[in-house]
Design a binder for these strands. Structure first.
Lengths: 222, 222
DNA sequence: GACATATATGGAACGTCATTCCAAATGTGG
DNA sequence: CCACATTTGGAATGACGTTCCATATATGTC
């Protein structure tokens, strides 16, 4: 399993080319669109050839996710203050997960592997810079991380559902709101009352508010 | 494979029986163990018959998840104070997701449907009781919910990975810690330094600490 | 510059699943 | 007891991930 040293045909396969193609397919056709057949077709090769560069589908998905996450984190401009940087990182990830909903579910399946580790590291550095006591560092970082992953996961689930039913975001929210507003008032008073607000809410603003909530819990002023 | 002719089977199929069987399979064999063939076998019927009571696999998974979540929420003893009740609900869910890791990923795929709605409602009632301003209710509830789902998702991913590689929890953590401690010190200082702590940390305590962090952000004293 | 070897490729073949189909069995109301 | 709706079980279908294998293409050696 050595790396090839020489130069092959220019359009030869490579892990990076495969990952790029996978990202393009995931973006255009969603998670279900990514199959080794589709991939082979866009790469003008056979399904078997891909396995020379990629362990399996999970490996590919994680790698694709990692590529996007790495770009995203690099692009996130850190403010002067750690708190601002944490917000910037989080918002960057939110936007990425909004643009590529498949990232949400990929991250959810990634365990402690690269894409998550990358996020953890960046958050950790900022939390440390914030002066959080050492024995609370892990707790703090993993709370922020879990929150981000949770939001991303729900985002992905919603996008998937909406996509499968041919609804855009606002139609989808109306649908949900409608469903919720018809619930039993005794059993679901809260959901019913919140249903009205649902269609006009701003995911991104809510996300940031959640981050601020956690930061305030650590003692970082909003 | 016919049963005694003349009488319909006494243990005739029903949505509930199917869901029960699914839960048993999920608990014993994990997510990958749940197939319609396996289900049909334990229910002593054919795969096709199941579709009379259940829409598809996703429906089944969501229903199974909902059954467990409903039980869990009912069992959660609310304290006198809303804050304590929120903690109790969260911890109850954590324990459920710890015992049935498949719930984590099922919830992640459940969108705004029943199991999630159920959790949202219970949290919402408590947040409301807490006196959070109305325009912050949704934000607050969905922050807590996202956090819980995020933790559950990671839990599920870890359990799945560990299961697939025949590792128990502590072996798995040692593995991860070992991996992290070999990372490039310049690129991953935080992850490296935290790796030592990893094997001895207590998921449950960390989870509760995260909940407390958010609650403190709302202004609920720990 | 040809041979031996490691590296890559492409497509067929396999096994597993979810899902659909359909013929038969079983219940129900008239 | 007879039409009719409901329910069942198993076979067929089609999609997919993965493995296999017969070729191709580079590299190093002499």
């Amino acid at each position: 399993m050595k790396k090839a040293v020489g130069t092959r045909r220019q359009d030869s396969l490579s892990r990076d080319r495969i990952i790029d193609a996978a990202i393009r397919i995931l973006d255009s056709d969603g998670e279900t669109g990514l199959t080794f057949q589709a991939l082979a077709k866009t790469l003008a090769t056979g399904a078997g050839a891909i396995y020379w560069h990629v362990e399996n589908k999970n490996d590919l998905l994680t790698a694709a996710c990692d590529a996007v996450v790495a770009r995203t984190l690099d692009a996130a401009e850190g403010g002067a203050m750690p708190g601002a940087t944490i917000r910037a990182l989080a918002v960057g990830l939110f936007d990425a997960m909004d643009e590529h909903p498949w990232i949400g579910s990929a991250l959810a399946r990634a365990g402690g592997k690269m894409p998550i580790l990358r996020i953890l590291e960046r958050l950790g550095q900022q939390v440390r810079a914030l002066g959080v006591p050492q024995d609370a560092e892990w707790t703090t970082v993993s709370a922020i991380l879990s929150y981000i992953l949770g939001v991303g996961g729900q985002n992905a689930a919603n996008a998937q559902f909406a996509g499968q039913h041919g609804l855009d975001r606002s139609k989808f929210l109306e649908e949900v709101a409608d469903e919720w507003s018809r619930l039993d008032p005794d059993e679901f008073p809260f959901a019913r009352s919140i249903a009205l607000y649902l269609p006009q809410h701003d995911d991104r603003a809510d996300f940031v508010a959640g981050i601020d909530l956690i930061l305030r819990g650590i003692g970082v002023p909003s």
